[in-house]
């Protein structure tokens, strides 16, 4: 999911590569500005926790068949942070680039955009569902957000590489199968997190209280 600096710009087609890098930086700057403007006191620790969680989680790779993959969790991030996903991902990716040479400083813009834009999309598409009164639809929305966030990010990376003229041996059957498995995993983790939050801290999602907490409140 991280585009390496060695690939963009492609020497065969440097102009397209530079346009993509520039566009990535510009859109990331806009998104980060919006995210920062909407930040308030309550949200800062949440953004930091998610930034740290992403920083660690996407360093952890586990094997699916012959390739190894990692979780992105940008769908969940979008549901909980909204536009603040931009600054959270920017910081996490910057640290990954500096400390581990994942991605790179020039490709930081496009990499942030590829993961944060789907997060914001999930925020608008599935946020209302997840905040809704019915637990079942909320969890369905969470599953959809988890899968959509990951798949959209993969699509943006693929589109950026294709537009830069990168010879692309990626859309193979194997890669599709791996991404399908990964989408299911992301959906499962997102559902688990949303379910848990709706039970114990629904205000994080601005959702109504689900069963156990309501009982506790009525008792005491």
């Amino acid at each position: 999911m991280h585009i390496a600096e060695a690939i963009l710009p492609n020497p065969e087609n440097p102009a397209a590569g530079l346009v993509i890098l520039g566009a990535g930086w510009a859109l990331t700057a806009v998104g980060t500005a919006i995210g920062l403007r909407r930040l308030d006191h309550e949200q800062i620790p949440r953004v930091a926790v998610f930034s740290a969680a992403f920083f660690v989680v996407s360093l952890i790779h586990f094997p699916i068949g012959p390739v190894s993959v990692h979780l992105v969790l940008n769908g969940l991030m979008g549901l909980l942070l909204g536009w603040a996903a931009f600054p959270a991902l920017l910081v996490a990716l910057l640290l990954q680039a500096v400390l581990f040479q994942y991605g790179g400083l020039t490709t930081l813009g496009i990499n942030t955009l590829a993961m944060a834009a789907p997060a914001v999309a999930c925020h608008y598409l599935f946020g209302p569902l997840v905040r809704g009164a019915r637990p079942r639809t909320a969890l369905a929305g969470a599953a959809a957000a988890g899968a959509t966030g990951m798949l959209l990010a993969g699509l943006i990376v693929a589109a950026a590489l294709l537009a830069a003229g990168e010879a692309f041996v990626w859309l193979s059957q194997l890669s599709l199968a791996v991404h399908a498995v990964l989408a299911v995993l992301e959906a499962a983790v997102t559902v688990a997190a949303v379910h848990f939050l709706r039970l114990v801290r629904p205000e994080l999602l601005r959702a109504p209280l689900d069963a156990p907490r309501r009982l506790e409140v009525s008792r005491g």
Binding site: H2, P45, R46, V49, F50, A52, A53, V56, V57, L59, I60, H61, F62, S68, H70, F100, Q101, Y102, F196, L197, V200, R201, L204
Partner: peptide, 24 residues
């Protein structure tokens, strides 16, 4: 406070997963 859960997840994850970096 449920905020502790992500904290624990982050720390456990980082401890469990050390040898398994790839992709770079």
């Amino acid at each position: 406070p449920p905020i502790r859960l992500p904290f624990f997840a982050v720390i456990t994850w980082s401890l469990l997963a050390l040898p398994a970096w790839a992709h770079r």
